[in-house]
């Protein structure tokens, strides 16, 4: 649905260039929620702004819904933008318009006539649960309600893609959850493709199907969460399952990741039984990630190198992902 191909964007002048996007390629499948995570200054906002060409890349192409935006004329680009919704961290609602007026703005811009505007606005306000606030002004709303208006406005003209730039970063945790749930349900009910930007792993964990990790204008890794989890060395997977610091010492420590059904298996008990290893459990986390039950445990293995190798081979043979965090002596 969204494809960025070798996109580059540099700010500043020749003396002090800031490479906000450094040869970024990315592909978001139709109907998925794709999260881009990274620290402040990583280039996330620049990335999402290139998708509707609020920021025109220096080089590379942007394709949305099979249309190459970077090749369009200005007029065609306006049309294309009307088919891509966007929500913002600071909501960006017009203070001068009511909730209804803010949603109708999107329809006025597209040129929908009055009666249809009213009908569509009622419909979309109901969808985001704000029909009773239609006549209020943004200043009278809570942060979460403002963002619902932002979402309603973005979706009023029925786009198939929604871009979200830190939409929940100005909200408290509970409100964040309710907005994320709304995005999830819109994604399911409308088949909406969502590209979202965040600096919080919890956001990725709770709603995303796929994710990319961004740093210094580059995408370090990306993929479906279920695939990333079974990818040894994945920083994203480590972020999804923070298991804390390694204990002191020289013992062998491994991380075992289960995705899907295998999470049911009693690994620790089995290692003890089959390999006679008195395994130490250093940490464990269970999450529903990308819709699948997943978990990761960090184990400390006593015994000899040979025993470790045999145990690890055995686990891998069962389809579990094993990562050696520290190789003991």
């Amino acid at each position: 649905m969204i494809t960025l191909s070798s996109v580059t964007k540099t700010f500043g002048d020749a003396a002090n260039p800031v490479r906000a996007l450094d040869d970024v390629s990315l592909s978001v499948a139709s109907g998925e929620i794709f999260g881009v995570i990274g620290q402040s200054g990583a280039g996330k906002s620049t990335l999402i702004r290139t998708v509707n060409l609020l920021e025109r890349p220096d080089s590379g192409t942007v394709t949305v819904a099979d249309r190459e935006l970077t090749a369009l004329s200005d007029r065609e680009l306006l049309q294309a933008r009307r088919e891509i919704g966007m929500v913002f961290q600071q909501f960006n609602l017009l203070d001068s318009r009511t909730v209804r007026g803010n949603v109708e703005l999107a329809l006025e811009i597209v040129g929908v006539e009055r009666r249809q505007r009213t009908a569509r606005t009622n419909e979309i306000l109901e969808l985001v649960g704000l029909e009773h606030k239609a006549q209020q002004y943004p200043a009278q709303l809570s942060g979460g309600q403002k963002q619902r208006v932002g979402i309603a406005r973005a979706l009023a003209s029925r786009p198939r893609v929604l871009l979200s730039d830190e939409a929940t970063s100005a909200l408290d945790p509970e409100t964040t959850d309710s907005i994320l749930q709304l995005l999830r349900s819109l994604n399911k009910e409308l088949g909406l493709t969502i590209l979202l930007i965040t600096h919080e792993m919890d956001v990725v964990k709770s709603v995303c199907d796929s994710a990319a990790l961004m740093s210094g204008g580059r995408i370090l890794e990306h993929g479906r969460l279920v695939d990333l989890l079974s990818q040894p060395g994945s920083q994203l997977a480590r972020g999804l399952f923070p298991l804390g610091e390694l204990p002191e010492g020289t013992s062998t420590v491994i991380d075992v990741t289960f995705v899907g059904l295998s999470s049911e298996r009693p690994v620790v008990a089995q290692l003890a039984r089959t390999h006679h290893l008195d395994v130490g459990l250093l940490g464990a986390a269970m999450e529903t990630i990308g819709g699948a039950q997943s978990g990761r445990t960090r184990l400390e293995l006593p015994g000899t190198i040979e025993q470790h190798t045999a145990a690890i081979d055995d686990l891998r043979a069962q389809g579990l992902v094993v990562e050696i965090v520290r190789s003991g002596r």
Binding site: R81, R82, G85, N92, I109, L163
Partner: peptide, 10 residues
């Protein structure tokens, strides 16, 4: 940001 929102709406 409002101008930006306007741009995003086409």
């Amino acid at each position: 940001g409002l101008v930006e929102a306007g741009h995003s709406l086409g």
